[in-house]
């Protein structure tokens, strides 16, 4: 599969105090480490092991991810927005890479 690329869906605008729904998806194989290849050798684990979301530097949501999570992990959660600003999302890969995405929201 292609290089992991984050996708985020959230409204462009909201009224102050509104609870918005945030949807996130990243393409990733989420290789559990439990499988074997054709020669019988274990396929090393490679998963996204952590996901975080911040708003203007304040944590909104985060979680550790375990091998049982299936490929292309999808997260949906809600957040109350009081001011205009930027959401920052990051996905931490077992290989040390971090994939990030930023998306702003305006208060009407």
């Amino acid at each position: 599969m292609a290089k992991p690329r984050p996708r985020v869906k959230l409204p462009k605008t909201a009224s102050a105090g509104e609870v918005i729904t945030i949807k996130t998806l990243i393409n990733h194989v989420m290789e559990s480490g439990q499988r074997k290849d054709k020669e019988g050798k274990p396929i090393p684990r490679q998963i996204i092991n952590k996901f975080t979301c911040e708003f203007n530097g304040t944590p909104v949501f985060s979680c550790d991810i375990e091998p049982a999570i299936s490929a292309n992990p999808y997260f949906e959660f809600t957040a109350k927005v009081m001011e205009s600003g930027k959401f920052k999302f990051s996905w931490v890969d077992d290989n040390g890479e971090t994939y990030t995405h930023e998306q702003g929201i305006q208060i009407k």
Partner: peptide
């Protein structure tokens, strides 16, 4: 379509 994992393959 955002949740549909098949859409990742459409992009590819």
């Amino acid at each position: 379509t955002f949740q549909n994992p098949g859409m990742l393959y459409v992009e590819r």
